Computed example of a mutant assay.
Amino acid sequence: MRRLLFCLLLLGLACAQAYAEPIRIKDIGRMSGWRENALNGYGLVTGLAGTGDSSRNRATRQSIANMLSRFDLTITADDMQSRNVAAVMVTATLPPFARAGDTIDVTVTSIGDARSLVGGTLILAPLKGPDGQIYALAQGALAVGGYKYDMNGNVVQKNHPTVASIPGGASIEVGVKARMQSDHHTVTFVLSDPDYTTATRVAAAINARFGTRLASAQDAEGIEVAVPENRRGQLADFITAIENVMVEPDRRARVVINERTGTVVAGGDVRISKVAVTQGDLRVSIVTDNTVSQPLTVSYAGQSGQALRVANSRVDVEERSETGFVGANNNTVGDLVQTLVRLKTNTRDIISILRAVKAAGAMHAELIVQ
C-alpha cells in the first residue's frame, strides 16, 4: 500500500509538470452545441424460453394483441398467455452529428417480471427524442451478459439477465446536425474545468493566433469567438484552427482522498504552511488461550471424571515507543507524505493527518474526499 501511495504521488508530480506545458485547446474543453441527445422507446422482446412476463402483466398482453393486429389478426388481450414475450424499454444516445442510415447501439431493459432476456429478439421499436419525434428504429437479437436458471428452488444467476444490448441495433431515420454558429456569427468554446485564469489565457491565445481580437472570455467557462466574414463559409476549418491553438492552462491546487481504497493523489506543488504533526500508535488486543483440563483416571461412586475445556483470556497493550513528529515548514504535500512514509505511517493515518492539516488551515489546496 505504501509503495502504491508513493507511486501515485510521483504520478501526480509528473502530471503537474506535464500539465504546466502548453496543450491544445481541444484537450481542455469543447465547442458549445456539441452535445448528445437521449432517445427512448417501448418495445417487445420475443423468443424467450418461458422466461418472459407472466400473465399478470396486462400491458404485455395488450401490447402483443396490438402488434398482431398489424397483421390483420384480431386477438384480445385476455387470449394471450405466452411467457415467451417481455415488455421492455429501449434507450439509445444520438450523437451530435448523425445522418440517416447511421447505426447506434441500444440498451434494452425489462419493465415487467421477466426472469431473463437470454435468447430474445427485439421487435421493431421506434425511438423518440424529448420533442416526441421519431429519430431511430431499433430491432435485432439481444446480447445478454448474464443468465439465470432456477429449478426446484435452486437458482443460479450471473450479472443481470434482464438487461441486454444490441450493438448497432438502431438505424437513424432523421439526421441531426449540431448548430455551432450563432445568429451573431460567433462560436463559443466551453472549458471542462471552469476557471477565469484559464479562460482569459485561452482568449489571449486565440487572438494571438489570428492576429486580431476575435475572442473574449465571457465568464469562467465560456470563451466567445467571432467568426471572420471570410471564414463563415469554411466554419469547419476555422474551428479546427481554434482547437489546435496551444495554451498553458492554470491548475488549481487539489488533494484527492479516497477513503475506501486508501488512496491519496496530490499535485507536486501543493504548498503547506508551517505546521507540526504528531502521530502515535496504541494497539489493544485480547488473546484467548483454550486449554483442556484432563482429570486423573480415578472413579468415585462408580462415576469417572470428565475432561473440562478452560478458556484463559488476557489483554495485551502494545504502544509504539517512538512517536512520529513531523515539522513542515513551507513544504509541499508530496514532501509531507514522503516523510510520513519514511516513518512507516500507514495510509489510513496519512489520510487522517492530511485532513487535520487542512482543518488547521495549513494546506493551501482544495481537499476532495471521495
Rank of each mutant, 00 (worst) to 15 (best):
L4R: 15
D27Y: 08
N37P: 01
A38L: 07
L44D: 03
L48N: 07
T51I: 06
A59D: 13
Q62K: 14
S63K: 10
I64L: 07
S69P: 09
M80H: 03
R83S: 07
V85K: 03
A87E: 00
T91I: 02
A98V: 12
V106K: 06
S110P: 00
A114P: 04
T121W: 00
K128N: 12
L137K: 12
Q139L: 07
G146D: 08
Y149P: 00
M151I: 15
V155D: 08
P161L: 11
T162N: 12
S165A: 13
Q181T: 08
H185Q: 11
F189E: 01
S192G: 12
N207V: 02
A208M: 00
G211C: 02
T212L: 01
A217Q: 03
D219G: 06
V225M: 03
D237M: 09
D237L: 15
I239A: 06
A241T: 13
R251E: 07
R252A: 07
I257T: 05
T263Q: 14
V264K: 04
L282Y: 13
I286T: 13
I286F: 00
D289C: 01
N290M: 06
S293W: 04
S304K: 13
A311Q: 14
N312I: 10
D316N: 12
V317G: 04
R320A: 12
N331S: 08
R348L: 05
A359P: 01
A359F: 02
G361H: 07
H364L: 06
E366W: 03
L367R: 10
